[in-house]
Simulated assay, not measured.
Amino acid sequence: MVQHPVGIRSLAVNFPSIIRTNDYYREKYPQIVAQSEQKSLAKLFSLSDSTASNEFDLEMMPYLSDPFRGTVERRILAPGESSLMLEERAARDALDAAKLTPNDVDLMIVASVWPEQIGFGNAAFLAQKLGLEAAAWNLDGACGSTPLAIQNACALVRAGEYHNILVVISCTYSRFVDEDDTVSWFLGDGAGAFVVGSVEPNQGILSTKTLAASVLNDIGSLNINKDKQGNPQIRMQLSKDAKKIFSETAAELLYTCCDGAAAAAGVTMEEIDFFLFNTSTAWFARFATRVLSIDPERTLNLYPLYANIGPVLTVANLYHAAQLGKIRKNDLVLVYGFGAAGVASANLMRWGNVALGSDPHFKESDSPVKSFSDRSIICR
């Protein structure tokens, strides 16, 4: 049966106003940087001995001498900024790019990691901000939410339930880790949004393979602690076995989802033009190309610019790949994301006429990365 062509029509990203480079931590926390190998980040991404036991460890090894493990910059919420604010900006930008208004949207799907209010997702709050009267609900696939949301949105449009679906993704990790905890060095904030609807024949989403990422359930948790004033605060805590769990399961999840999506569309890895991964570490893109046996030139790694921004990574990688001309109309593009206590999921799509939102604003004077075309940072 020939499927109704459905895919991404527009794409936008938005980031908070603070950019923190490694110099910020060197200047503010010199002792912690000097003792970094005794701290939580080093314990999370290190080897118990000097040898690599799998592809993940092998690609991690070149970064072990760097106390920041390959992170160069992070985008961090400023006072007064919130996940909802980033989501609203990205959503409006994606709608503007698609030449739509909130009145043209008949469903909004929102995935927030994690919203400011406890117990409620951002969907209804964002709908109020946008003046959206259509349906709006929350989706939770952890850091695998982006390809999962693409799969759900496309299925609903194909089924004729909705016509224009706005998907909004955010991640605000900085709110859940103290900045003097070295784990904060590889975490950042951001939001992305895209419109899913009918596209030209032979374009759009071709297939998806999604798995429950239950093997990652024990990587971390959210705990309620007290701040210095005795007020309750939520803090992210990583398991002491997080690195072991991750490195031992990442390859199988990646291969199963990507191979499954390719097989469902009847194509081989060699026929796919470009791959975009949830680059949650500086070496994940190289790790993924090794596991899938593909040329590293067929992917993009924005981790050094953004650090780990959860499910927003896949949106940002898509946006900048299109912006840089790495993916073009009619290219076969595979997108993969995964998240602890969430899902691992891969979409295969044929890229169409995707309208891009405004370019994120970066202060070059504050940034060691002067251009997205700096391949030594972006593509390696």
Score class of each variant (00 low, 15 high):
N278F: 10
A264S: 11
P232N: 02
S221T: 07
K240V: 00
L222D: 07
R290Y: 00
R298G: 12
V291C: 11
S280Y: 07
G266A: 14
A282I: 09
C258G: 01
D259Q: 05
F246Q: 04
N225K: 15
Q237T: 03
T279W: 03
K228N: 08
L302S: 07
Y255D: 10
L254G: 06
S247G: 11
R298E: 03
L300K: 01
W283E: 01
K243M: 13
A263T: 10
Q229H: 12
L276H: 03
A282Y: 11
C257A: 06
F287R: 02
Q237W: 05
L302M: 15
P232W: 05
I245D: 09
A262W: 13
S280K: 00
A282W: 02
C258A: 04
I294E: 13
K240P: 00
A251P: 14
A251T: 07
K244Y: 09
D273S: 08
R235N: 01
A264Y: 00
F274H: 08
C258Y: 09
F246S: 10
I294L: 09
L276S: 08
K244E: 04
F274L: 08
R290G: 08
A264K: 12
E271S: 14
S293A: 15
A261W: 06
N231F: 12
K228R: 12
T268G: 09
A264V: 07
L276Q: 14
L253I: 06
D259A: 09
L302Q: 12
E252L: 02
P232E: 01
A264M: 02
P232M: 10
F246T: 04
L222M: 14
F277R: 05
E270R: 11
A282L: 09
A261T: 08
Q229L: 13
E252A: 08
L292E: 03
K240I: 05
G230A: 10
I219L: 12
Q229N: 10
P296K: 04
T289N: 08
L253Y: 15
I224G: 01
S239R: 14
A264T: 09
Y255C: 05
F277D: 09
T249S: 14
A263W: 01
G220Y: 05
M236D: 03
N278D: 02
L238V: 06
T268R: 12
T268C: 12
T281G: 10
